[in-house]
Simulated scan of single mutants.
Amino acid sequence: MQPPLYQLKAEFFRTLGHPVRIRVLELLQDGPMPVRDLLADIGVEPSNLSQQLSHLRRAGIVVSRREGPTVRYALAGPDVADLMRAARRILAVLLADREGVLQQLRRADAVGEPR
């Protein structure tokens, strides 16, 4: 029996729930990259990057292709880039709201208003 769609979605988002994986997806939005360039941009140990790339590849979010001694990674499709852009827009709104609340608190503190 197939798991419910909401469960599959939760698993998908858990797969994305690691900072290195998110950074890889951000970098790959500009096109395929060799592992050496990902390493240079992300600045983690090779074994850590390899583990995170493997996770993304098993989930079908990225694909890899060997070109001689070089392995290049790419997003599995344009929807992944769309998802990353949507996440950026959502975060921009959420963080803007938080900044607004912080500014209100600072103004209240400046004039001595009770909280």
Rank of each mutant, 00 (worst) to 15 (best):
P4Y: 06
L5Q: 10
L5R: 11
L5P: 08
Y6R: 11
Y6A: 14
Y6F: 09
Q7I: 12
Q7V: 11
L8H: 09
K9Y: 05
K9S: 11
A10Y: 13
E11M: 06
E11F: 02
E11L: 13
F12C: 04
F12Q: 04
F12M: 07
F12Y: 13
F13N: 07
R14Y: 09
R14M: 10
R14F: 08
T15H: 01
T15N: 06
T15A: 04
T15I: 09
T15W: 00
L16Q: 02
L16G: 08
G17D: 15
G17M: 04
H18Q: 11
H18D: 15
P19V: 09
P19S: 14
P19Y: 10
V20S: 07
V20I: 15
R21T: 04
R21A: 10
R23H: 13
R23Y: 07
R23K: 15
V24Y: 05
V24T: 08
V24L: 12
L25K: 03
L25F: 05
E26K: 08
E26V: 07
E26W: 03
E26P: 00
E26M: 05
L28D: 02
Q29E: 15
D30W: 10
D30K: 14
D30S: 15
G31W: 10
P32L: 09
P32K: 12
M33F: 05
M33Y: 02
M33P: 00
P34F: 03
P34Y: 02
R36E: 10
R36L: 02
D37T: 11
D37M: 08
L38C: 05
L38M: 06
L38F: 04
L39W: 00
L39Q: 03
A40R: 12
D41Y: 05
D41F: 05
D41P: 00
D41L: 12
D41H: 13
I42N: 06
I42K: 03
G43A: 05
G43F: 04
V44N: 03
V44P: 03
E45S: 12
S47V: 13
S47M: 10
S47I: 09
S47L: 13
S47N: 09
S47E: 12
L49Q: 05
S50R: 13
Q51W: 09
Q52V: 03
Q52C: 07
L53H: 06
H55L: 15
H55G: 07
L56D: 03
L56C: 12
R57A: 14
R58N: 11
R58I: 00
R58A: 07
R58W: 02
A59W: 08
A59V: 06
V62S: 01
V63Q: 13
V63P: 00
S64T: 14
S64L: 08
R65G: 09
R65L: 12
R65K: 15
R65P: 01
G68F: 10
T70L: 14
T70M: 11
V71R: 11
V71H: 02
V71A: 08
R72Q: 13
Y73T: 02
Y73C: 12
A74L: 10
A74R: 14
A74V: 07
A74M: 12
G77T: 04
P78R: 14
P78M: 07
P78F: 05
P78G: 12
A81I: 01
D82S: 10
L83E: 00
M84A: 03
